[in-house]
């Protein structure tokens, strides 16, 4: 009985579909299009794929961390670009500088980002080691300023939104401890060795781990943000306009460049992080010598 009713109902629907398709064909014919095969085949409704509870959060935070509106203050730093321009005029070339900068930033800092993502409990140790490895005042200032901003973003904005899953809670408490260590270090400026400095690299790795980013995503976002900061600096230094900047950002060269350096540094131990473009240290270190400056580094 119910079977029969179902049958007649589906028959009615099929009739309706045939009717609609007939009308579609007629309408297409009027437009001059031949009837297409794809349209005639009935398409099943697309369902929103179902995720587990963690992944959407991770994607959400991936977008937040890659957003140029993330208040790290990166726009205040040119990572040596401004100084490079002053030193190499009139033969400056942005593509060359971008290649050097990517290589240098990856070889000095990326191993620390990856290490903090692998072992977020070693955050304080990694921070101290990175502090000993940065050879110039200007670079150190840039790294610390952005690192502290990221820590503030975590404390004030992100921490409430991340559910403490058991495998992350350890890292979260480590981060809390680190923030405390930093505050104490600031109040007791004893001697020359700081207890904590809050460099960007290790903090980025640890926070990316806590919000659930994959290691590869973390490395990619970190390097991409660096490229974005350089491009934004280049636009403000009037090297080229915003459309050209987007063109460079979207280019295959930048994509491959980032992928190459990540691959190169994927297994680099933090002890083996170091400068691969020595002149970069000179450019960044001599930024203070510029007569006029629009950036902090």
């Amino acid at each position: 009985m119910t079977n029969e009713a179902d049958c007649s109902q589906s028959q009615a629907i099929e009739n309706e579909i045939a009717d609609l398709e007939q009308r579609l064909r007629a309408a297409k014919a009027r437009l001059g299009h031949p009837p297409s095969e794809a349209i005639t085949a009935s398409t099943p409704p697309i369902e929103l794929p179902h995720h587990d509870t963690l992944k959407p959060t991770a994607t959400h935070f991936l977008f937040l961390l890659s957003d140029s509106a993330l208040p790290l203050g990166s726009f205040a730093f040119s990572s040596g670009l401004e100084s490079y321009l002053a030193h190499s005029r009139p033969n400056s070339s942005f593509p060359s500088f971008l290649t050097y900068s990517l290589s240098s930033y990856a070889s000095t800092t990326l191993p620390f980002v990856l290490a903090a993502h692998r072992n977020p409990e070693k955050l304080a140790e990694l921070d101290d080691t990175l502090d000993a490895s940065i050879m110039c005042t200007v670079g150190r200032r840039a790294s610390v300023a952005q690192g502290r901003a990221l820590l503030s973003i975590w404390e004030r904005s992100f921490s409430g939104a991340v559910s403490a899953r058991p495998e992350r809670s350890e890292a979260i408490s480590q981060l809390k401890e680190f923030a405390l260590l930093l505050r104490n270090a600031a109040s007791t400026t004893s001697g020359e060795l700081p207890a904590a400095s809050a460099h960007l690299g290790p903090l980025f790795g640890a926070i990316a781990f806590i919000v659930g980013l994959e290691r590869q995503e973390t490395a990619y976002v970190f390097m991409l943000s660096h490229v974005k900061a350089l491009l934004s600096a280049a636009v403000r230094a009037s090297m080229f306009g915003p459309y050209h900047a987007q063109k460079v950002l979207a280019s295959v060269e930048v994509q491959e460049g980032i992928r190459d350096v990540i691959q190169r540094e994927w297994n680099t131990k933090v002890e083996d992080a170091g400068q691969s473009v020595p002149v970069m240290d000179l450019w960044i270190g001599r930024h203070e010598m510029l007569y006029s400056r629009i950036f902090n580094s």
Partner: peptide, 23 residues
């Protein structure tokens, strides 16, 4: 106190920017 690492890796490819002398 300080760790000063410098790695000069020969030529990383054939492009101009990847040649060590250019770097």
């Amino acid at each position: 106190l300080v760790r000063d690492n410098v790695f000069l890796d020969g030529n990383l490819g054939s492009e101009k920017e990847r040649l060590l002398k250019h770097r």
